[in-house]
Design a protein around this nucleic acid. Structure first.
Lengths: 110, 110
DNA sequence: ATAATGATTCAATAGTTATTGAATTATTGA
DNA sequence: TCAATAATTCAATAACTATTGAATCATTAT
């Protein structure tokens, strides 16, 4: 993953609203959720939700698919996994072990 | 890790300057770097660097220690590892495997 | 066709973030 | 003490982000 992509992902995740939306879509699984469902579930006004969904989509963290007059959103798990890989490669210096924290071995460079 | 902490970390990592600073400090290892070294290495004016170091410190991603008239900064690897754990717990839904991406098994809930 | 529904875009506003140069604080060295 | 050095804070500005309500666009149902 290149740096601009990583920055966009971090910026997208730096809002409580967007983090909540993304988590909801992760939990929703492959079916995702239409905008109205997200709006209702998280109690976010449609216009504000649109704003944040746009940011998430621009960062690539969610995809949008038209479904009649609904708009269905899904989490892009692959990008999140890539992001975790990016952080992993940037988080552990020489000889630093991640075992201490309960993260699986092999995750960090060390 | 709680949500406000995660949000602060993501916000801190959402600036190219701060990401560069953090990576530099990770590479520097336990010795860290004094502010002037960071400023010179990344070609960032001292006053702007102070601004971004403040953000990183507030998020907990770096620590600062006075050393004579210098200020030594170090990366907080533990917090980064916690952040990776946070993302891991929020990235993989039911039955989603991370194997595809080359991330070690056991990382995702699966 | 027309009305109703789902969602987005637009316009306005308030608040926040990034950057720069000048001023300030603190420590070291002559 | 006095000048020099390291770093931060302050003040000003420009740019961006978040939120809301009104308006618009597209699709569905009558």
């Amino acid at each position: 993953m290149d740096k601009p992509t990583a920055l966009q992902v971090f910026e997208a995740l730096s809002s409580g609203v967007r983090l909540d939306v993304f988590r909801l879509l992760v939990q929703a699984g492959p079916d995702g959720r239409v905008a109205g469902e997200i709006s209702a579930a998280l109690d976010i006004p449609p216009t504000n939700l649109s704003f944040h969904l746009k940011g998430l989509a621009q960062a690539g963290l969610v995809t949008a698919e038209q479904e009649g007059r609904f708009q269905r959103y899904r989490a892009n798990i692959a990008l999140m996994v890539d992001t975790i890989a990016f952080l992993t490669e940037n988080c552990c210096g020489e000889g630093v072990s991640c075992e201490l924290t309960g993260i699986a071995e092999g995750v960090c460079k060390s």
